[in-house]
Design a protein around this nucleic acid. Structure first.
Length: 678
DNA sequence: GTAGGGTTAG
């Protein structure tokens, strides 16, 4: 049973390549209008080579020429207007960029190239994803001291793009010059690199360190960090902190930051806040683009606020923007979330007419909404409708339907659909794998469960919380309790916290099969997780530990949770411990029990004394016990006293005289009684 | 002469 793939990468990333940016399916006439009014900062158009070529360049710079085709007439004209050294550098740039042997090219042309020329080449390598050459050139620049702050920021940026945040960080840490290390461009590059690679917490930690070391953050710094809040738990409050800090530093939000903030609000169910940021943005003179509108619309979806959504779409149309596929699909989401299934269906028809329903996504939205409202039959018919329309179903629609069937108790149908998926498709990720696993588990298909687990292993799909949960529940159902336990251990190691009821059920069964220490381990997993634990849990594990004679562990449980444990259970524990537990801890146990408000009865004292008599070398402990008893007002009853006297030879006369002093004599008032809560 | 964002599904 291998549930912990050795690979640390997740299968999800293998299966889903980085999505390519969506293009707007708009008519050319409208699209021009949108591009000019989109107000997105114009970053994209600045970087497009078409725009660069079209831009008027009265006095071409080295950068411009290096990007042009040398055969181009314009460039030839430009060449004539420049000095020889200039042309030599321009030529050297091209030679180095185009040379198949970077080493020798640098040897030949390196002397001519200035730092800014090398930076041009560096960025060129980065843009072309020539990572090997990028590193090699950067090393060369370092070795020849032809390096500037720009070299660092570009290099770090591209190292982040090539998904190597550790390398970028290492580079940054290796900078010894303080002013270079505090250069805002370089810092922004490093932070961006961490954020991009999903290391938001690290980026915030580094950010604090940078500020401490003298960085003065600018708007881009905050914008970069804000972007990290989008895919992070509790991103909204983190984003708010950043906004507060940037305002405190006298910086202003721009349309990029507002865009990011709207996404954060939408994914954190902050509908009203999204709206207020949207308005604030407009008040400050930034005109929203289609992304701003879509994000706000998405925020409305979480509240199912379809009236506002419709107003927003109207508002957007009157501002001259045309709803695109994403916008309309998001509007469908609003209707689905608002349970307006008639409107949803109508909109789906409209999407289809516009050619926007060619993939499964809008169908998935509707199916999922229907299924979660209990309308499984309707969901099934949308699924079939989608298949009839030759829309290719994929992992999403299958996982929605399989999970719905499982939830609705239609296990056979779920299993059949899982088999259908396996027969027709070979794209797996953790979500579809979980749905398939769930179906096979509920249908009791052990062979298929095991096969699916092996498949996940082979494809390096990391099991997630749900995977573990499904499997543990299933193994319990099949009475494979040790397997369930091992799976739970694995789950715990991976940082997932199992739910209380699952722990409770497994713990109970482990106790039954006398897997006492395993049961205690389950108890500990729950106890040291952030989850709540029901009070009865402590007593449950206490009985198991007593049965397994794991008395030291039982002692810890009692010590920490006595107030949640019944007096009968405490009594049972005390008896077991004094009888069989570690002799060195007997006094401590008695003190703890007394300290939690229980009176200790004479039979227990007598048992303790018997233990000490059996091991006379522990006579100091006996003495301590008797002294403690005296201090707490307990007395030694006659039978215990007789027991000690009978064994007087083991302890010595003086000892006996001390312990049998008058204060220890039995008083009638304290006689009798088993422990009673004080 | 360098650095920032993005909308929809399980």
């Amino acid at each position: 049973m291998e549930l912990s793939p050795t690979s640390t990468c997740t299968g999800f990333h293998h299966i889903h390549p980085r999505p390519t940016p969506l293009s707007f399916p708009l008519t050319p006439r409208v699209s021009t209008a949108i591009t000019s009014s989109s107000g997105g900062g114009g970053r994209g158009s600045q970087r497009s080579s078409a725009a660069a070529a079209a831009a008027p360049t009265p006095t071409p710079t080295l950068v411009d020429i290096s990007c042009n085709d040398p055969q181009n007439g314009c460039a030839v004209d430009a060449q004539r207007r420049h000095s020889k050294p200039y042309l030599a550098r321009k030529n050297a740039i091209l030679q180095v960029q185009q040379s198949p042997h970077l080493d020798s090219a640098l040897q030949r042309f390196g002397g001519v190239l200035k730092v800014q020329d090398l930076n041009v080449i560096l960025r060129n390598f980065g843009q072309q994803s020539r990572w090997q050459d990028l590193s090699q050139l950067f090393d060369w620049m370092q070795q020849h001291s032809k390096i500037s702050a720009s070299s660092y920021s570009s290099y770090i940026k591209f190292t982040g793009t090539s998904l190597n945040p550790a390398k970028a960080l290492e580079m940054y840490n290796s900078i010894s010059d303080e002013s270079t290390k505090n250069n805002v461009f370089i810092c922004n590059s490093v932070l961006r690199c961490l954020v991009r690679n999903g290391k938001f917490d690290s980026s915030m930690k580094l950010f604090r360190k940078m500020k401490h070391n003298g960085l003065i953050p600018d708007a881009i710094t905050y914008s970069t960090l804000l972007a990290g809040c989008m895919k992070v738990k509790d991103g909204y409050s983190k984003a708010l902190d950043l906004v507060q800090e940037l305002n405190y530093n006298g910086l202003q939000m721009d349309s990029v930051m507002y865009g990011t903030l709207l996404v954060v609000c939408a994914s954190n169910n902050r509908c009203e806040e999204a709206q207020s940021y949207f308005n604030q943005m407009k008040d400050e003179g930034h005109s929203p683009n289609i992304y701003h509108y879509s994000s706000l619309l998405n925020a409305y979806a979480s509240g199912g606020n379809y009236k506002k959504a419709e107003e927003l779409v109207q508002d957007m149309k009157s501002s001259g923007l045309v709803p695109n596929k994403v916008m309309l699909t998001t509007q469908l989401k609003v209707y689905v979330r608002g349970r307006l299934f008639e409107k949803s269906r109508d909109l789906l028809v409209e999407l289809d007419t516009l050619g926007f329903a060619k993939d499964e996504m809008p169908y998935c939205l509707l199916m999922d909404g229907l299924a979660k409202t209990g309308c499984i039959d309707e969901a099934r018919s949308v699924f079939n409708e989608m298949k009839e329309k030759c829309v290719k179903p994929g992992g999403y629609s299958y996982s929605i339907m399989i999970s719905s069937f499982c939830r609705g108790g239609l296990f056979e149908e779920a299993k059949e659909l899982a088999e259908e998926f396996e027969a027709k498709y070979d794209k797996y990720d953790v979500a579809i794998s979980n749905a398939i696993l769930c179906a096979y588990c509920r249908a009791g298909e052990m062979e298929s469960v095991m096969r699916t687990m092996r498949k996940m292993d082979e494809l390096a799909i990391s099991p997630d919380y749900n995977t573990f949960h499904i499997l543990i529940k299933y193994f319990c159902k099949e009475k494979l309790y040790m397997l369930a336990y091992q799976t739970m251990e694995d789950m715990h190691r991976k940082g997932h916290q199992p739910a209380e009821e699952l722990c409770s059920s497994l713990l109970f069964h482990l106790g039954k099969i006398k897997a006492h220490s395993e049961a205690f381990s389950v108890y500990s997993m729950l106890k040291y997780s952030k989850r709540t634990m029901c009070k009865a849990f402590h007593e449950k594990i206490l009985h198991i530990l007593i049965a397994g004679k794991l008395l030291k562990d039982a002692y810890v449980v009692v010590k920490d949770n006595a107030k949640f444990i019944s007096s009968a259970a405490i009594k049972k524990f005390a008896k077991s411990f004094v009888k069989l537990g570690n002799i060195n801890l007997i006094n401590d146990v008695l003190k703890v029990i007394h300290g939690s408000g229980y009176k200790i009865d004479q039979r227990l004292f007598q048992m303790a004394v018997s233990r000490y008599i059996a091991q006379p070398e522990k006579k100091d402990l006996l003495l301590q016990l008797l002294q403690w008893m005296r201090g707490q007002g307990y007395v030694v009853d006659s039978s215990t006293r007789n027991l000690i006297l009978k064994n007087a030879h083991l302890f010595g006369q003086q000892f006996i005289a001390e312990i049998l002093s008058k204060k220890h004599m039995m008083s009638k008032a304290l006689k009798s009684h088993w422990m009673t809560k004080g």
